[in-house]
Amino acid sequence: MDFLRPASWEEALAAKAEHPSAVPIAGGTDVMVEINFDHRRPEYLMDLNRIPELTDWEVGEESVRLGASVPYTRIMEHLRTELPGLALAAHTVASPQIRNRGGVGGNLGTASPAGDAHPALLAAGAEVEAVSVRGTRMIPIDDFYTGVKRNALAPDELIRAVHVSKADGPQQFAKVGTRNAMVIAVCAFGLALHPATRTVRTGIGSAAPTPVRARTAEEFLAAALEEGGFWDNGKVVTPSVAQEFARLCSAACNPIDDVRGTAGYRRHAIGVLARRTLTWTWESYRTAAGEGKAA
C-alpha cells in the first residue's frame, strides 16, 4: 500500500489520473473501517485532507457549492437556512465524532444506499462536480447513483464539490434506525417543497438498491396541491392526499430483507415518514405564508 499526500487539488487530480485505483480518503469514516477490518487493501490511499478548498463552501444565487469534505458538523451549524434538508440529515449521521470528520463527498463516493445525505440531496436537487485532468463535468444527482455502492464517477475522477440548490421552501429529513443515536438507516426519507416552481421533490434511502426519488408520488402531490389551490390558499393538505402521497412513496421502494430490517417494514416506514414530513413541511409553508414570507 502506498500513501499519497497531494498538497493541492491539481496534484490530487494528477495522482488520480496516474493511479486510477487510488482510493481517496478524507474523513476516513468508510475507508478506515474497511482497512481496520481487513476488508480492503487498496494499492494506493490518497489523502485529501491537505486540500483546503475541499472543506470550503460558497453560497451562490441559486445553489451552494459545497466542498466535498465539508464536515457534517459544519453543514449543521452553518447551512441550516440554505440547505435545511441536508442540515437535518447531517444531524442524523452517526456520532458527533463522525460528523466532525465525514462529509458529503464520502457519502457520494461510497454511494451506499444507506448514506444519510442522499435523500436530502435528491429532494433538494443537486449536481455533483466531478473533476479529472480531462476537465470538469456536472453530474445531476438523479444520474449519479448507478447501482449498489456504484456511482457515475469515472476511474480518474474525484468529487470536488456538490452544488445543492438553495431551499426555496421548507425541507425535512427523517430516518428510521433501531437505536436513538449512532445508527445506520433502516430507511430514510427526504422531502423538499419547491414553492418557486410549485413542485415537490423526494429522496428515499436504504429502501432500494440505490437512493431513489418517488417520482410518481412527487407528480401526484404537485398536481394535487395545484388542483386544490393549496399553494395559494394555505389550507391544510387533505388527509386523503397525504395518504395517497405516502402510498406512492412506499410504492417507489424496492427494498430487501436484511439484518437491519424487513422489506415490508421499510416500505411501511417510508410511507409513515412521507406522511409526517409532508405534514411538517406543509405546516412550515403555511405558517410562513401566513406571515407573508412565502415565495
Partner: peptide
C-alpha cells in the same frame, strides 16, 4: 479512541496515520 485533532473530537481509529 476519541482524541482531538486540531481541536476537534474525532475517532482516531478512523484517521489514517498519514493524515
Amino acid at each position: 479512541c476519541t482524541v482531538r485533532l486540531d481541536g476537534v473530537p474525532v475517532c482516531s481509529c478512523l484517521v489514517a496515520a498519514g493524515q
